[in-house]
Design a binder for these strands. Structure first.
Length: 216
DNA sequence: ACCCAGGGTCATA
DNA sequence: TATGACCATGGG
């Protein structure tokens, strides 16, 4: 399946954010996109940027009410405001953004997981895409697509089992490959299902039973 | 008028 | 451990 994705998408890589995004934008984006669409997360990110709030020190000290007003369009604003603040505070205590990003995965991941509002997926997204650490992101798309293909590592597999499943299948020394393959899955999830005639044109969504229709 | 979205936390049993 | 309510806005 990974080879199929590679063949289908090749160089057409999705990379979490428009290229050259600063790490702080990737970190904030990873929190804002929780249980929401990426387009709404991007709008919230833009309003943070316009307000000059895409900064660890600013986010860590800005009242949650103000942050919430800025990120309203991404849903659950008070929840996400608290989470953004918590993440910024953790990074400050870690010695600032540069020091934080230089941490090893083994040091960084527990810090992230100990932060309010950062669970396994958000932690891995930050470690992989903001810091370039070699950890695979398991999201709803990944589970849905592969489970439908009968490629679930084990029935009812948890996050860790899914993650090991992919990490074992990918080059052990190449964080870029981890980014690329997770990107393929996102591209595939955003693609249109082309199974015909039953499901012609349906988005690969929860309602669509076909995970395999990469190409006609 | 529904249902869903690239999650995570908290209270219950 | 496991399940469910909750967060709350925008789009199909």
């Amino acid at each position: 399946m990974l080879a199929v994705l590679e063949r289908a998408y090749g160089e057409d890589v999705w990379h979490w954010m428009p290229d050259r995004a600063r790490p702080i934008e990737i970190i904030a984006g990873a929190i804002l996109v929780q249980h929401t669409t990426w387009t709404n997360a991007e709008r919230a990110l833009a309003s943070l940027r316009d307000a000059g709030a895409l900064d660890i020190g600013v986010l860590a000290s800005m009242p949650e009410m103000e942050i919430a007003a800025l990120v309203r369009v991404s849903g659950t604003p008070s929840v996400k405001a608290r989470r953004l603040r918590a993440a910024a505070g953790m990074i400050e205590r870690a010695g600032g953004i540069d020091t934080f990003l230089a941490l090893s995965l083994e040091a960084m991941r527990p810090l992230l997981l100990a932060t309010h509002g950062i669970g396994p997926e958000t932690a891995d997204a930050i470690a992989l895409y903001a810091a370039g650490r070699r950890t695979f992101v398991i999201d709803a798309y990944t589970r849905r697509i592969f489970a439908r293909l009968g490629l679930e590592p084990a029935p009812g597999a948890g996050y860790t089992a899914w993650q090991r499943f992919f990490e074992d299948a990918l080059p052990a020394d190449d964080a870029g490959a981890f980014q690329r393959y997770h990107g393929y899955i996102v591209l595939h999830a955003k693609a249109r299902c082309r199974v015909r005639p039953v499901c012609d044109g349906c988005p690969l969504s929860r309602r669509c039973p076909h995970g395999q229709a990469i190409e006609a």
